[in-house]
Structure formats: C-alpha cells, structure tokens
C-alpha cells in the first residue's frame, strides 16, 4: 500500500498525565499517507487525549510526535503554522455562532493564510461544495441541523488543505438519521486520498472504510490490525470483551 512512504503522523512513546493521573502510557503509532486509522475503546481509555495531543491542544508530558516529518514538540516549531496542516473535527462541532457557514470556513483562510477576502470566500465555497452544503453558505449555525453543522466543521478544517485530519467522535452528538450524511463525507474524503485518524463508535464505517483498527484501553494500545482481524478474530481478551459489550 503506502506503507513504504514515511508516515504523516509518527508518535513514539507518548505519555500524558493530568496532575497525577496517567492518561496515556507510552503510545507508539504511525499513520501512513492516505491511511484511515480507526481508534476504538471504552470511555476513559485516552482516545480523545491522544487525538488532542497530535495538534497540541493538550501538551504531552513526554514522548515525540512528528507530523509530516516535523517534530511538533520542538521549541522552534511554530505550532500555529503546524495546526494548518492538521485538521480537527470535534464531537460538539464548535462552529462560531456569530458567523455564517462561509464565514466560519473563511476565517482561518483570511487570518492565518492571509488570503484576500474574495479569494478566501471562493475557497470556502468550494470546501462547502465538497461537503454538499454550498446552498447553505449564508446560513448561521443556529439555522442548520446537527449533521449540517458537522459538515460545515469538516469544510472548515478541509479548506486549509491539511495533510492529516483528526476526527474526535464526529457523529456521537448527532441524531441517528443525521449520522449518515457526515459518514458519507468522510468516505468521500477517504476516497480522495486524505490521511485520517478517527476516534468513533461507528463500527460499520470502520469495517467499510478503515485500513487499520486500533483498540485502546487504560491509556495504552492493546491490539491493532486490519478491520477483519480485529472485528472477526480479536486475540486479546479485553478486545473481545469490549466488542462483545458493543454488540449486545
């Protein structure tokens, strides 16, 4: 596949403690270009924290994280510039309520990439088109459904042309009938070759779209493999217990 190319995301020995509680106990993870890596595990296993360390929304306690070859922990690294290469989609969307959909997508283009307003709005419209919402460009978040808001959030991250996209439980806050629209966008991103690290409970999506599935528990990676391996023939007892709980 693409395993011969250097990984877009290279995590070695990542540890994170909050006060004296160790949440991540030495994570090693490499995500290769165009891979979709799916992370599953019980709540409290550290999945979200892992994701948030990747763009330093949480500060790792120790270990190294390299994105596209650059050490994001180094003092000399401009983290704001780095964050342009890493897109993040949140469980609670976090759209800016005082701006239209187009405004939400264009803000970083104007302020971070310093594009002139007209050009930024064009790019924003194109991103909204990719997620199927170009007709909602002038709508405010309050006027959009949950699924639409999340798609705008994806467009907001996409517009910066990131090398890597992080998804933190993107559909967990959505009503069931709206989940499909967001997953379809994610499928399309995968097809277009985006490198993605996804934390989610949507197992069917994982079976269809994931290249690798990782099971985390208590801050460590317990087992990893292809979707077939993990879902059909898990080797670790904890993995089996977790999957059994899910399908109950």
């Amino acid at each position: 596949m693409t395993a011969d190319r250097p990984p877009i995301l290279d995590i070695r020995g990542l540890r994170k403690s909050f006060h004296h509680v160790e949440v991540l106990r030495g994570i090693d993870l490499a995500v290769h270009p165009q891979e979709l890596v799916f992370v599953i595990g019980p709540s409290g296993s550290g999945k979200s924290t892992l994701l948030r360390c990747c763009n330093r929304l949480e500060e790792p306690t120790s270990g190294s994280i390299r994105v596209d070859g650059i050490d994001i922990m180094a003092r000399s690294t401009d983290i704001n510039a780095m964050r342009r290469r890493i897109g993040m989609v949140f469980q609670s969307f976090n759209l800016y309520p005082h701006m239209t959909a187009r405004g939400n997508v264009a803000l970083a283009l104007i302020k971070v990439l310093r594009k002139p307003r007209a050009q930024a709005e064009e790019i924003a419209l194109a991103a909204l088109h990719r997620v199927g919402l170009s007709d909602k460009a002038r709508a405010y978040p309050a006027e959009l459904s949950g699924g639409q808001q999340q798609r705008v959030a994806i467009a907001r991250a996409l517009a910066l042309e990131p090398k890597l996209m992080l998804f933190d439980e993107p559909t967990s806050a959505l009503d069931p009938e709206l989940v499909g629209s967001v997953l379809n966008v994610m499928r399309e991103l995968k097809r277009a070759g985006m490198t993605m690290l996804v934390v989610s409970h949507e197992m069917r999506f994982a079976r269809d779209a994931a290249d690798r599935v990782i099971f985390m528990d208590h801050g460590a990676i317990v087992e990893e493999g292809s979707p077939e391996e993990i879902f059909a023939k898990p080797t670790e007892p904890r993995t089996r217990a977790f999957l059994a709980d899910l399908t109950r």
Binding site: R83, I86, G87, M88, L95, V112, A153, L160
Partner: peptide, 12 residues
C-alpha cells in the same frame, strides 16, 4: 470548544 476550534485551525 470555541477556543479549541479556532486554535486548531492555526489562529493565534
């Protein structure tokens, strides 16, 4: 969440 979203797109 608003801070997270804005910072994650590279805004200072």
């Amino acid at each position: 969440g608003q801070w997270d979203a804005a910072r994650s797109t590279g805004l200072t």
